[in-house]
């Protein structure tokens, strides 16, 4: 994706206009958000550009919506709709229209698997049209769906009092947690949101639909590029690998390493365990090579020139755009040097 697009996106984040942040903090916040936007820009160029939302039945209660930036997972039943991520916000009307083709129930929950604008951009608009789960004295004074995420997602979408936040308040998660899992029972199904510490960022989660047997991975897994590691936002290659292995622990294939648990990646097509295994292998092998190279005293430039990702580049790499192979190698290197 072009630098112009990234600049435009960065500008859209509000960072360029932010004046109240102290310079170092402002720079850090802007670069973190810029990478998040850039990731979205890259991904936009690699997937559905037909302007439509494609809805795919996965299994059980779960659907997958493609075309709104990051993938959206929808769990649908008599109790209503639960979304994992809300897309980039530019396609809200079409997202809602696609959902209305399979249900007329209200949206009660949005679970954000990270703070990326590609995943949370639709929060405000979609949540506003949703409905709280409880009413009466226990009702949410704010109408709309509950937004659930790790605490660090809220931290990165908001700002300390008196400072300008990078996203509007209506998009912020209002149900957050610091550690462990967040459990919800919805549509006759346990829905478990699990922290994936310091992976793509420091606020990643995966969501496991236990009865439907579907896992929504967020940004730690995709089928279109090397994993994006946002070092500025607390990401780390080892956290990505731990997260992938965690998903493998949860997934059980039905027959001969196929089917069974289905996996919805942050971007790209529907997967099962084998797809994620090959991705895990690839990321682990590259991590191990860079680790070995560091032990041998090789510099970052030497590692980049060594061709350690040569066999994976045609499928996952990029020489241009906002998340290049060199950037990925650098992120791995810096993760391991920490």
């Amino acid at each position: 994706m072009t630098a112009a697009w990234v600049q435009a996106a960065t500008g859209a984040s509000g960072c360029a206009r932010e004046r109240r942040l102290k310079p170092p903090l402002q720079a850090k916040a802007c670069s973190t958000l810029a990478l998040a936007f850039a990731w979205g820009a890259l991904m936009f160029g690699q997937r559905s550009t037909d302007g439509d939302i494609h809805i795919l039945k996965v299994q059980g209660n779960v659907y997958m919506l493609v075309g709104a930036g990051g993938n959206i997972t929808a769990q649908i039943g008599n109790s209503g709709v639960l979304l994992v991520n809300s897309g980039n916000g530019k396609m809200n009307e079409k997202v809602l229209a696609a959902l209305r083709t399979v249900t007329d129930k209200p949206i009660h929950y949005i679970i954000d698997t990270s703070f990326d604008p590609e995943l949370t951009g639709g929060n405000e608009g979609i949540a506003r049209l949703g409905a709280p789960v409880v009413g009466g004295n226990l009702g949410n004074s704010n109408h709309g769906a509950a937004i659930v995420a790790a605490e660090n997602v809220l931290t990165r979408m908001s700002a300390p009092a008196g400072q300008k936040a990078p996203t509007p308040e209506g998009a912020w998660p209002g149900v957050t947690f610091f550690e462990g899992d967040k459990e919800i029972f919805f549509n006759h199904e346990p829905v478990i949101t699990m922290l994936t510490p310091n992976a793509h960022t420091d606020g990643d989660t995966i969501v496991f639909f236990r009865r439907s047997d579907v896992i929504s991975t967020g940004e730690i897994f995709n089928t279109v590029s090397y994993p994006v590691i946002n070092l500025e936002a607390g990401g780390n290659i080892n956290g990505v690998i731990d997260g992938l292995n965690h998903v493998l622990d949860l997934a059980i294939p039905e027959h001969e390493q196929e089917g069974g648990t289905y996996i919805i990646p942050g971007h790209g097509r529907l997967c099962d365990e084998h797809d994620l295994v090959e991705y895990r292998d690839m990321v682990t092998i590259i991590r191990d090579r860079v680790q070995t190279a560091i032990k041998r005293g090789m510099t970052l430039d030497q590692i980049k020139a060594a061709g350690y990702t040569k066999e994976y580049d045609p499928r996952w790499g990029s020489k241009t755009g906002s998340w290049t192979t060199d950037m990925f190698i650098e992120a791995v290197y810096k993760s391991l040097k920490k």
Partner: peptide, 9 residues
């Protein structure tokens, strides 16, 4: 199927 569908052996 669409490009977004799962792959099989």
């Amino acid at each position: 199927p669409s490009d977004y569908a799962a792959h099989t052996w």
